[in-house]
Simulated assay, not measured.
Amino acid sequence: MSLLEIKALTQNFGGLCAVSEFFVKFEGRELMALIGPNGAGKTTVFNITSGFYKPSQGDIVFKGKSTVGMKPHQVTAMGIARTFQNIRLWNDMTVLDNIRISQHYNLGYSIWDSLFRTKKYVKGEEQIKTTALTILEALELMPYINELPKNLPYGIQRKVEIARALSVKPDLLLLDEPAAGLNSADVHELIELIKWIHKEFDITIWMIEHQMSVVMSLCTKIKVIDFGVTIAEGTPEEIQNNPDVIKAYLGDENI
């Protein structure tokens, strides 16, 4: 059974077809990239996969079960976590609380347990905090646990967002342009971090990224879309020399 299989995925917004007949399959533990020019439909694919959009057509099967129609928190509970192109952290909460709150989709206690501070509530909160601290320590973020994200350097904010996604213990991690806005030193650190996460957490990673140095350093397979249509799929070497990909990025005169 495949970890994830997307079949004939199509997304229309009014008269615009953002994604057309998209297919992909993950067996598990891959590190794959989805690339394409701006407006190609990449983030739309991620939004559908993570439950933010319901597709116009097609199916998404994760661990043998269709996720079409599920809410984002239900998709997360199944084992799909993501980051966003524009960092979405709760800036008025500490780094620790950002990681803690991400786990509340799967609380082991009721609202009554919370109101009366029952043993179940105390045990649940202790477990959530332990998980959060474990993730923060693994990603070397412990010096920042009491800081507000808005006061941290951009590269650290990216790491916090990745930590938050990992805290839900996903089988599939979606990274939407993780290198966006980072300087060269932070990009190098990010590459090493993603390599470490892939190995240490033993998970599948699917990433959207415009910086080809990141894609070529990390991914063994790349899928390319343009105007919502898949135009190429293969190894980094195959993609780098594909005339359709060069045309999509640079135009006809460069072929």
Rank of each mutant, 00 (worst) to 15 (best):
M1K: 12
L3N: 07
I6H: 08
A8Q: 15
Q11M: 13
N12D: 12
G14H: 05
A18K: 10
S20I: 11
E27L: 06
P37E: 02
G39T: 09
K42C: 01
K42G: 01
T43H: 11
G51M: 06
Y53E: 06
Y53L: 07
I60R: 10
G64Y: 10
T67H: 03
V68E: 11
G69W: 06
K71M: 07
K71V: 01
P72L: 06
A77G: 14
I80V: 12
R82Y: 02
R82A: 08
I87Q: 08
R88W: 01
L89P: 00
L89A: 09
W90A: 00
T94P: 00
V95R: 06
I101N: 04
S102P: 03
L107I: 12
L107Y: 10
G108H: 11
S110V: 07
D113I: 06
T118S: 15
K119F: 01
K120D: 09
Y121V: 02
E126R: 13
I128D: 12
K129P: 00
T130Q: 15
A132G: 10
I135L: 07
L136G: 10
E147W: 00
L152Y: 03
Y154C: 04
L175Q: 03
D176W: 03
P178Y: 05
L182M: 15
S184D: 13
D186L: 02
H188Y: 12
E189W: 01
K195V: 01
K195Y: 01
K199H: 13
D202S: 15
I205M: 08
Q211C: 03
Q211I: 15
M212V: 07
V214I: 14
L218Q: 04
C219Y: 02
G228Q: 10
T230C: 13
I231F: 00
G234M: 03
I239P: 02
Q240D: 11
N242P: 03
A248K: 08
